[in-house]
Each structure stands twice: as structure tokens, then as C-alpha cells.
Write a protein that binds this DNA or RNA. Structure first.
Lengths: 133, 133
DNA sequence: ATCTTCATGACAATCATTCTCATCGCGTCC
DNA sequence: GGACGCGATGAGAATGATTGTCATGAAGAT
């Protein structure tokens, strides 16, 4: 496993972006992160935010989901495999575990002769606060 | 429950679109359906295909998924709740059942105080044919 | 300090999807 | 068998997220 990946340089921008994602409890899109950074005085470019978040996602540093309307959103999560329960109102996210799903997935793969199965499992709901408000 | 929905008219275009979706075993995007129809001599407009498929999806006549690269794809499926195992290569789709997932979902909702939970659960893999080829 | 190379930022380009609007043609009522 | 009202259509423009381009900047190694 000779990593041919070029080294990721540490830049001011990436640090700012990383901080911004970590500061959020909810999933945020590249555009949202960019907005926040700009509003707090940063000069990062939008393309840079897109590139950095993609790189971080590829490196497993952040999780990604696709919002119901199709946008990609990022969030710093707990390491290890898990799924998400996301509030449609405020975006608040809870990490959840789905015991049994992995083995069911493997069984299904075997049954139908599919290989390299990947799953996309997310839950969207309305949290107590948003239901009340 | 006074249905305020306007009546859906039967038009040549909708019939063509419906036939095209039904003819496909795989999920297909609006653009793909439009291409097929054009190639077989139809004159339907792209916007019409988008509108018709959306309406059919809203009416529960077809299932939709979001492909890994973000496009929306449609397919005529078996009635009743189920999930999909889609081949990344040829798009071949198998409908699968996930016993236990619904009750797990309800339990999770209760635990975290979320309401109106919706789930997005799809599997992507490579089918035997595509692995071989 | 220098040099190599990846990173950045402004902006253009893509691409899926939606909107606009003039026109068409279902479904219906006479 | 018309005439009519209104949803449906189609062409093209508009939108909006994401990606590409390219000249310049600045990490990290020497």
C-alpha cells in the first residue's frame, strides 16, 4: 500500500475551513461554510471551500450526506461507522447505530451476487424543538 | 379529505413517458428517458419529461432514488414499501426488503424525540455480470 | 534563500433542473 | 359536433450547485 497520494499541505484556509466545520453541530454545505467564513472576515474563495471539504471527506475526516434537495453537506463526526438522524428544521444531527444492518447487507449481497456493496442510509425527521416551535 | 388536486390529464406524452419508464428494468433519469423517447421518434420536450416523472413520483406510480452523483432517477416498482440494490455498472435493480428496519426507525425516533421520520436507504454494488465483464 | 509543486482565488464553464410563456389539446358541458 | 376552460406542452432562458481554468501565492524540502 504505497501511498501515491500527494501530501496535503497545511494552509491557513484549510485550517479555517476545518474549524468552521467542527464548530457546527449540524451538517453544512460548502456554500454555508463559505458564507460563515466570509462573514467572520475570512477571504477564502468558494472553490477552495469546495475542494477542501471534498479532500477532507475523501480522507475520512468529515462525513457527508446528500440533503433531500440534492446538496452535499459535511459534518465532523465520531470515528467509526454510523448513520445519521437529521432534523429537517434546524439540521441538528444525531449519530445512530444500526445493529444488524451490516450483516443484513452482506447477506443481501451474497444472495444476489452483488459485490462491493455500499449503503446510503440516512434518516430525516423533525426534532422536538422544531416540532414545538 | 377533499382532494383539491387538479385532475391529471391523459396526454400522448405522458403515455409515452410511462411506457418508457416501464420498459426499463433499471432506474433512469429524466434525461435518459427523454433521450430514449427522442431516439425512437417522439417529440416530447425535456421539461415535459421532468414534469411528468415528478408527477408520477408524487402519485406513487414510480419510485425515485438519487444516484451517487446526485441525479434523480425513476423506476416502476412493485407496490409496497421496499428498498433497492442498484448495480453501479449497468443499473440493474433488485427490490429488497429490510425486515426490522421500520421498527428500529420508530424506536430511534422515540428515543431522540424526532417526529415524522423519513428514511433514505439504498444499496449500491456491482452485479455478477458487471463483475465478470 | 531557493525551488518545486500543490493550493488558492476570481471567474468562466458545466450540467441538472426549473421557470416562463405562448400555444395546444384533454375533458366537459351544451 | 362544437365551443370552452384550464391543465399540459415545448422551446428556450434562467437558476443554482458544482467543477474547471489559469495565473499567482506560499508550504515544505534542500
Amino acid at each position: 500500500m504505497t501511498s501515491t497520494e500527494p501530501v496535503q499541505r497545511r494552509t491557513r484556509q484549510r485550517a479555517e475551513i476545518r474549524d468552521a466545520v467542527e464548530a457546527s453541530q449540524a451538517f453544512a454545505t460548502s456554500q454555508e461554510i463559505h458564507d460563515r467564513l466570509r462573514h467572520s472576515g475570512s477571504t477564502v474563495g468558494l472553490a477552495t471551500v469546495y475542494r477542501a471539504l471534498q479532500a477532507m471527506a475523501a480522507g475520512g475526516e468529515v462525513d457527508t450526506i446528500r440533503t433531500p434537495d440534492g446538496q452535499v453537506a459535511y459534518r465532523t463526526c465520531t470515528p467509526g461507522h454510523h448513520h445519521h438522524l437529521v432534523c429537517r428544521g434546524c439540521g441538528k444531527t444525531v449519530e445512530i447505530d444500526l445493529p444488524g444492518l451490516e450483516s443484513q447487507t452482506r447477506a443481501i449481497a451474497r444472495e444476489y451476487g452483488f459485490a462491493e456493496i455500499d449503503h446510503e442510509v440516512e434518516f430525516f425527521g423533525t426534532c422536538a424543538d422544531c416540532t414545538a416551535g
